[in-house]
Amino acid sequence: MTVRGRLAARGIDGVTLLVLPAVALLVLLFVYPFLYGLFLSFRPKDGSLLGNYARFFGDPFFRDTVWVTMRLALPVTLLNLLLALPIALRVRHLRRQRLLITVLVLPITLGTVLVSEGMLNYFGPQGWFSRTLMLLGLIGAPVKLVQSYTGVFLSLLITGFPFTFLLTLSYVTGIDPALEQAGATLGAGPSRRFRHVLLPLLLPGLAITFCLSFVQAYSVLPSAVLVGDPSRTTRVISIAAYQAAFEEYDYAMASTVALIMGATQLAVVGMALGLRGLLYRGPAGGAKG
C-alpha cells in the first residue's frame, strides 16, 4: 500500500488538506495571541512571576471589576431568559413571526454603540421616554436612566433580549408540537404540560442560551462607557483591560485582565454546562421510526 493510499484510508486526501489554511490562520491569529498573552501575563513590569495577578486581586480598583461585571451580566441574562421563554412559547404559534423577528434583529445588527447613542437621547432627561411618563402623570420630574448602572442594564436588555429570544425561539420551535398534544390528550393541562413535557426538553437548550447570552453581557464594553458610569458602578472588567492596554500601555497587565475575564466567564459557563450535563439531551423532535 502506498503512503497516499494509507493516508486516504484514514480520511486524509487532497480534500482534507483544504481545512489547513483556515486552521493555520486561526492558530496564528487566535491560539498564538492567546498563548502569548498567557506568557506575557506572567512577565509583569516588576519582574515577579505572579505580579500581575497579585496586583489584580490585591487592588480593589481591579478586583471589584469582576463583581461589577457579574452584578450586571447575571441579572440581565436571567431576566432576558425569563422574559424570552414565555414569549417564545406564545410566538411559536404565531403564523406571521417574521415581522416580529425582523424588528428584534434590528438592535442586534445595529450594535451596542448605536443603541447607546439612541439611549442617550431617548432616555435622557428631555427624551421621549421621560416626557411620555410625565404626560401620563406617572412621574413628576424627568428620570435619570443613563450615565448609571440602570443605563447599562437597559442597554444590555435592549441588545440582549432579542438575542436571547431568537435563540430560545429556535429551541422552542424545535420541539414537535405533537408532544404537547400528546400531553394534552393524556390529561395534562397547560401548566403541567409545561412542567412535565416542555421544560425538561427545553432545559438543555436554555442552558446553552444562558451561556451565549451571558458571554455577550459579560463582555459589555461600549455601553458601559457611553451610557454607564464607567469610573464607578459600571467599571466592568473589559474597561479595566482596555485601560491597561491603551492608556497605561501595560500589555502584560492588559493580557492578565483579559485572561481573568475569560476565566471568570468560563467559570459561570462551565457551571451552567455542568448542570446541563445532568439533563436529558436527546432530540426534541419526537423520535422518528
Binding site: P33, G37, Y242, A245, Y251, S255, A258, M261, G262
Partner: peptide, 14 residues
C-alpha cells in the same frame, strides 16, 4: 464562544 474583548486584547498586543 469567547467574547471578542478576551482574545482581542492579546491579539492587539501581538
Amino acid at each position: 464562544l469567547v467574547p471578542p474583548v478576551t482574545y482581542g486584547i492579546p491579539l492587539a498586543t501581538v
